[in-house]
Amino acid sequence: MTAAVSFQRVRKCYGDLCALKEITLEIPQGSFFGLLGHNGAGKSTMINAMAGLVNLTHGCIEVLGHDVVREYRHTRRLLGVVPQELIDEPFFSVRELLRIQSGYFGLRGRAQAAWIDELLERLALTDKADVKTHQLSGGMKRRVLIAMALVHHPKVLVLDEPTAGVDVGLRQSLWAFAQELHAQGMTIVLTTHYLQEAEALCDRIAIIDHGELLTVASKEELLAAHPWRYIELETNEVAELCSELSARLEQRQGDLLRFRVERDVPMADFLDWVQRSHLDVKDLRSQRASLEQVFLSLTQETHT
């Protein structure tokens, strides 16, 4: 099946500084794809490049098999992009903006007006439809951007940090909407700094750092490949730890000890170390790695 988005040896340099270094990546159709990286890793450059807003130094990008430079008319119909920066349009109301954006795509008539009404309702903007965007709060502006990105019925929706600065209730309703669109077959590409969100929503994840693709895998593969598990011990008093535990101690907060232990170390061995350290254990919790820990581990490896 043709990839929803395909990056082929994409490089983008500004003089000597390369924001993207030979990125080759395929985003499968129908996936909920997480694009993760620290600030300045190159996520927004990748998104802008998908949208044709970046002149690439090398390589090409295709959306559903169409080149974003040569066939830009086609790819812009297939792609809906919610940019990271909030945007103001002081002359027009929300509904007028949606009508104008529809007009750029040649979409008019009753069916389109009904779709605009539906978008306004789904994004809780109906009562703000006749208000100009500069009179809206940050969260409302973010929802307007989502409506703008969806107004032409794209097949691939790109959300560049859509929940930055958005309150919890609205964030949850946005994710419910995104999941509904995904269930209807839309491919969703997401960048976010809330890694718990990415873990809960995404089925496939790419991690980029300093313009390089560190890994791309399904969420399960990524978590399974992580070589550590995390064990927390609550004790009554902390005695001298044996050398094995000392080497694996990650954090100590009063009587709470947190260890990072190799996954192939049997739990029996760990309990043996606990016994040798004469720890009076009140509670013990073992957790597999979270996406956040995998992310930090991968990005820290490249920095050391």
Binding site: A51, L53, L79
Partner: peptide
């Protein structure tokens, strides 16, 4: 220049206009 400053030029650049 206003479109550049407010950022709404993006809406035009994301459209299929040549």
């Amino acid at each position: 220049i206003q479109s550049k400053m407010h950022g709404n030029l993006t809406f035009i650049l994301l459209s299929p206009l040549s």
